[in-house]
Simulated assay, not measured.
Amino acid sequence: MKTKRILACAVVAMIAAGVGVLTGHSVLNADGVDVAQAAQPAPQSAVTQLWTAPVTNPDGKPQSLSLFKGHPVVINFWASWCGPCVEEMPTLAQLHREYAKKGIEFVGLGVDSDKNVKAFLQKVPVDYPVYVIGFGGADLARAFGNNAGGLPYTVVIDANGNVRSTKLGQIQPKELKQTLDAL
C-alpha cells in the first residue's frame, strides 16, 4: 500500500512540475503579450545571424538575406505543415501590400524543405519573398528568443537592425500594425 501511495505522489509531482514549466514559458500580460519575450530583447547577434543565414529560393538556388539589411523588415518563420502558419499567410500578404508604400519588407522563412515550400507556393501563392531556411531555421528563431521552438514565429526588425517585436503564434493584425506604424 505504501508503494502505491509513493508512486501516486511521484506521478502527481511530475505532472505539477510539467504544468509549472509550461506556465513559466507562456506568461501573458493583460494585453496578451508574452511577458518573458517582451522583457528579454533579442541580442544583436541574432540579427547578424539572420543576414548571413544560408537560405535558398524555393527552386533551391542560394540567396542572401543581406539584401534586406538597412530596411525595416518583418521576418516570419513558418512551415508548410504548420496549420496556424498557413492560416496567417493571407493576412501577412495583405499587410505586405499595405506597408510596401512605407518601405517595410516582409520575408517568409520556410523551416521546411525546398520541395515542400515550392509545392505549397504553387497551391497558395504569396506576394512577398519566401525563402527556405530548412530545419536549421529553428536555431535562428531560438536566437531571436523563440525558446519554445514553435511556429509561426514573427520578428520585426527596424532599419537600424534593432528587434522591435517578436511573436510566437499567429500574428494579431492590430498588434503588428501598431509596431509597424511606430517604425
Score class of each variant (00 low, 15 high):
84 P>Y: 06
18 G>T: 10
136 G>D: 10
4 K>R: 15
148 A>Y: 07
182 A>Y: 01
135 F>P: 04
131 Y>P: 00
84 P>I: 09
90 P>D: 09
125 P>M: 03
97 R>S: 12
25 H>M: 13
138 A>K: 08
46 A>G: 02
35 V>N: 04
170 Q>F: 01
174 K>F: 05
17 A>Q: 12
87 E>A: 14
52 T>L: 11
7 L>Y: 05
151 L>M: 12
86 V>D: 02
33 V>F: 09
115 K>W: 02
171 I>P: 00
138 A>I: 07
135 F>C: 03
88 E>V: 01
43 P>V: 12
140 L>G: 08
32 G>R: 07
72 P>Y: 04
112 D>V: 00
129 P>I: 04
71 H>Y: 10
50 L>G: 09
69 K>C: 08
180 L>I: 00
49 Q>E: 12
100 A>G: 00
107 V>F: 00
87 E>W: 08
101 K>N: 12
168 L>M: 11
175 E>Q: 08
86 V>I: 14
101 K>H: 12
59 D>K: 11
95 L>G: 06
69 K>E: 15
124 V>F: 04
158 D>P: 07
143 A>N: 11
3 T>P: 07
138 A>W: 05
168 L>I: 08
13 A>V: 15
53 A>G: 06
77 F>T: 04
139 D>W: 05
121 L>S: 11
36 A>N: 15
80 S>T: 13
13 A>Q: 13
68 F>H: 05
99 Y>V: 04
116 N>P: 00
26 S>A: 12
43 P>N: 15
29 N>Q: 03
98 E>Q: 10
39 A>E: 14
137 G>C: 01
72 P>W: 03
17 A>H: 05
4 K>D: 14
147 N>G: 11
154 T>Y: 11
27 V>T: 11
174 K>L: 09
66 S>P: 08
13 A>L: 15
19 V>L: 14
77 F>P: 06
179 T>Y: 03
93 A>R: 01
88 E>K: 07
5 R>S: 12
58 P>H: 07
43 P>T: 13
40 Q>T: 14
108 G>A: 03
58 P>T: 03
88 E>C: 06
126 V>L: 13
138 A>F: 11
87 E>P: 04
9 C>I: 10
141 A>S: 14
34 D>V: 07
61 K>D: 15
14 M>I: 14
179 T>K: 01
30 A>G: 05
144 F>R: 08
50 L>Y: 03
1 M>G: 13
125 P>S: 01
155 V>H: 08
158 D>T: 09
35 V>C: 05
85 C>M: 03
93 A>M: 06
12 V>D: 03
152 P>Q: 09
